[in-house]
Computed example of a mutant assay.
Amino acid sequence: MSPHHVVNRTLLALCGAVLLAGGLLGVSSWSVVAERLPSWWPSAQPGSVLLDRAGLGELRHEGWWTPVVIAGAATVLLASLLVLWSQAAAGRAGPALLTLARPDVTIRTRALADALTRDVCALPSVADGRVRVRGGPEELRARIRLRLEPGAEPRAVLRQLSEETLAEARASVAPRRVRAEVRVSVRSHRARRAL
């Protein structure tokens, strides 16, 4: 199991435990439920609050209260931002290893991108190309940048890219879907100056 899956499940379990405890405390204030609870069970009185103004005022006069609240809020904020950033990075980077159509065969996403780059650069009328592969376990996104030779026919290059290179990639990583985004530019007619 990948580390971000572990983090996801841990956070989900913690949120579930907090919500369950809050729900049980809220339900315990109902008179029908409160009568059947054991004496040691913490129950709230109907119409009461967890911390009243007098109790909160006493805590504010304590020297440790304000720094603890600020540190706790800052820790929760930083942890939330870190989890959000790691989730976004994991979604962009995609899985490190992809299982291919043949059993027990895997390939790194970087190796797949390099192979696609070589195939793209080998297409006729393509001067240069670059491929990046990202995505998740169900769908991969291939960002392809093509620089065509002057006078090249973009339609023919794109047809060959779709029917040959991308078709082979889709067959290799099936049952994942491969969505391709292609950006095309043309190499300048100007010849390089000799030094």
Rank of each mutant, 00 (worst) to 15 (best):
R36V: 03
T66L: 10
S2Y: 08
V173L: 05
V68Y: 11
L112F: 00
S185Q: 04
S162Q: 13
V27F: 09
V126R: 11
T99W: 00
A152I: 01
R60E: 00
V178K: 06
T10L: 11
R92A: 14
L84R: 05
A171Q: 12
T99F: 00
T10D: 00
R155F: 10
A113F: 06
E58F: 03
A90R: 01
P46H: 11
S80A: 07
W40D: 07
P124T: 13
R130S: 08
L81V: 02
G94E: 00
E149R: 03
S2Q: 11
A122T: 05
P46A: 14
R179I: 01
S2W: 15
L146H: 08
V120H: 08
L25Q: 11
A167P: 15
P3Y: 08
S162L: 12
S31P: 14
T106L: 03
R155K: 10
A88S: 14
S31G: 12
A90D: 07
A142R: 13
R145E: 11
Q160L: 14
L19D: 08
C15R: 09
G129L: 03
E139K: 13
L116T: 14
R170D: 07
W64Y: 12
R187H: 06
E164I: 05
R143F: 09
A122W: 02
C121A: 12
A111C: 08
R141L: 12
R155H: 12
V184Q: 13
R9K: 03
V133E: 09
T109C: 11
P46L: 15
A171W: 03
T106W: 00
S86F: 11
V133T: 07
D52M: 15
L112G: 15
L116K: 10
V184C: 09
L195T: 09
A152V: 02
L24K: 14
R108D: 00
Q45W: 15
A96I: 07
T10Y: 01
R147L: 13
A34H: 13
A180F: 00
E168Y: 04
W64P: 04
V186G: 03
G135D: 00
A79G: 15
T117C: 09
L82Y: 13
H4T: 11
E35G: 04
L146G: 14
R187N: 01
E164T: 05
V157A: 07
A169N: 10
S39Y: 14
G47Y: 05
D119K: 09
E35Y: 06
L84F: 07
L195F: 12
H4E: 15
R183S: 13
R147T: 12
D104I: 03
M1Q: 04
S29Q: 11
A21G: 09
S29P: 12
A101L: 06
A96W: 10
S185F: 00
P154Q: 14
R143A: 14
G16L: 09
D114S: 12
E62V: 11
W85T: 03
S86M: 06
Q160F: 09
G151P: 01
G63I: 00
P150H: 08
H5I: 08
A54D: 10
R170L: 11
V126W: 10
G72D: 04
L56T: 06
V18M: 09
R9D: 08
R102V: 03
L50P: 05
S86K: 02
